[in-house]
């Protein structure tokens, strides 16, 4: 159900996610200390290659990590066969990537 490639993909995506998550939380807490409007946030993120790369990488890592994690949960609770699990894993990963990608595009472009 989980082979070496999926295992490595999940661990490596976690490795990418961990510092990005800490960065996300730290910036969020710092940025709202004195109150910050949506316009002010967008003025900093729009057109920023750096924030686009930061959250773009975050979305890619989350899509990989969550899809494999949900695959394990679904298998162990519903016992679905691999012929269903494999497309389901891809569907979850692609859905998260598209939704996250739209969100990143919304604040960066």
């Amino acid at each position: 159900m989980i082979g070496v490639r999926l295992y490595l993909a999940q661990r490596l995506s976690a490795l990418v996610m961990a510092p990005l998550m800490i960065g996300h939380l730290a910036v969020m807490i710092y940025a709202v200390q004195n109150g910050l409007s949506a316009e002010e946030i967008l003025s900093r993120t729009q057109g920023s290659l750096w924030w686009g790369a930061f959250y773009g990488l975050f979305v890619i890592a989350v899509s990989i990590h969550a899809a494999i994690g949900v695959r394990a949960v679904v298998y162990e609770t519903a016992g679905l066969p691999e012929r269903i699990l494999n497309p389901l894993t891809w569907a979850i990963g692609v859905s998260l990537f598209v939704m996250g990608g739209r969100a990143v595009a919304g604040v960066v472009l």
């Binding site: 159900m1 989980i2 082979g3 070496v4 999926l6 295992y7 394990a72 691999e82």
Partner: peptide
């Protein structure tokens, strides 16, 4: 041990 029933589960 790396196969689908193996250690990664």
């Amino acid at each position: 041990v790396s196969s689908s029933g193996g250690c990664f589960n």
